[in-house]
Simulated assay, not measured.
Amino acid sequence: MIVFDLKCAAHGHVFEAWFGSSADYEDQQARGLVTCPYCGDAQVGKAVMAPAVVAKGNSRPEPAPAASTPVATTPDPAKMRALVEALAQAQQKALEGSTWVGRDFAAQARAMHYGEQDRASIHGEVAPAEAKALISEGVEVAPLPFPVVPPHAKN
């Protein structure tokens, strides 16, 4: 596995992404599968990364000087689980009363925006490029933090 810091061209969002290899990254990038998780922009490239330099086995790291500011620590797993659970519950509450429209999302969102269909709360699937097109038309859309299992796929 390899991790890259990536940056979207539209808004400069920097995010981390994992790939099986550099070749996997290049392949997914060429096929337009690498998109910004914040805005959906497909114009994504590698961001400047700090190199991971491993210390020699016979050298000891210098002790860190006493800092006046707190040092960042590894997040508490229990707190992270609670945060993810809270986000999942917030998404579930936001989707109450919303109708799953699957891949018909873009067409229905446009129809509602242009007054061809009554407004309603819907959610579904849309390609990043199509989501960007909807936003540029003024259609109000937002990505969900977690994937949604389509109703027909639930056990």
Rank of each mutant, 00 (worst) to 15 (best):
P70T: 10
S121W: 11
D24V: 05
F105H: 03
S59W: 09
A131C: 06
A72F: 12
G57K: 14
S136Y: 02
A107V: 13
K7M: 14
A55Q: 14
V148M: 01
A133K: 11
D118W: 09
P61E: 13
G97A: 05
L95G: 00
A66G: 08
D118R: 15
A111R: 08
A50I: 10
F19G: 00
P70S: 12
P63M: 08
V148P: 00
I135D: 09
H123W: 10
G45W: 01
L134S: 05
P70F: 09
F146V: 05
L33T: 03
Q92F: 01
K79S: 15
A9H: 15
Q43I: 06
I2K: 14
P77D: 04
M1W: 03
F4P: 00
E85Y: 00
E26L: 11
L83V: 02
A111G: 09
F146A: 07
P61L: 09
A50Q: 13
P143C: 01
S98P: 03
C39H: 04
G57I: 08
E96S: 12
A50F: 07
L87I: 11
M49F: 04
G102Q: 02
Y38V: 14
A17G: 07
P70L: 12
V71W: 11
P51S: 10
S22P: 09
A17D: 06
G40F: 00
